[in-house]
């Protein structure tokens, strides 16, 4: 890592010292300013920016932008909340809810779930209202010894796939198909235990929701 210069940026009226070139999302989080996020990966140079939850307003930009793709610059003025930001984040969250198995009490991630955190931070509801629930009836994959995979609780953030490819370097899982059929799966959509998965558990640790959860001992 090259030694980076520091810059001063303003988030919600308060000044912070930040490493130049770091993505705004991580700067904010490091300084205790919460911005909702699911798909963000700090090491990734070109983030997917697919969850559409980390919107912020930055002076000089006409429209809200995703914090995970913006590098901090000297004098940057950021607002994490605005009417437009809240509307964008609220809608993205509602869409996630419409395709997510609800019932937190019966979920392995209850209490440490990123969706619960976002809902709490932004005053959003963990249920569908405007939108119809489109959760498919898919059984939970309980084939691995250490963990289970519940596709209906997956938010398609792709974090598990990223650590599988870049950290564990296994290449057992990926995002397959498209549209409503998109899902995290193995080659040929086999059970996890029948794939090249080594059950290292790194993907389970990376899962922000209750899709991949360790089995109780």
């Amino acid at each position: 890592m090259k030694i980076s210069r520091t810059v001063t940026i303003t988030i919600d009226g308060k000044e912070y010292i930040a490493k130049e070139g770091q993505k705004l999302l991580w700067t904010a989080l490091e300084n205790g300013v919460y911005i909702p996020h699911l798909c963000g990966i700090e090491e990734e140079e070109k983030p997917a920016a697919g969850c559409r939850l980390c919107f912020v307003e930055i002076d000089g930009f006409l429209n809200p932008v995703t914090a995970c793709t913006q590098k901090v610059k000297e004098g940057m003025v950021v607002r994490t909340r605005s009417k437009r930001v809240d509307k964008l984040v609220g809608t993205a969250f509602e869409l996630l809810m419409s395709n997510h198995r609800l019932g937190c009490a019966r979920c392995g991630a209850n209490g440490r779930c990123e969706l619960q955190k976002i809902a709490k931070e932004r005053g959003l509801k963990l249920k569908t209202s405007r939108l119809r629930s489109l959760v498919p009836e898919v059984p939970v994959d309980e084939s691995p010894d250490k963990f289970t995979y519940d596709q209906t609780r997956c938010v398609l953030c792709g974090r598990c796939v990223w650590v599988d490819h870049h950290k564990a370097k296994i290449g057992a899982i990926g995002l397959v198909r498209r549209g409503m059929s998109r899902k995290m799966a193995t080659f040929g959509e086999t059970a996890m235990a029948d794939s090249s998965c080594t059950q290292c558990g790194m993907c389970v640790e990376a899962c922000p929701v209750g899709a991949l959860t360790f089995k109780e001992k």
Partner: peptide, 13 residues
């Protein structure tokens, strides 16, 4: 030299 699942991913996309 890429994971099998990546080929499957593109093939199903």
């Amino acid at each position: 030299n890429i994971p099998e699942v990546d080929v499957y991913s593109v093939g199903t996309f």
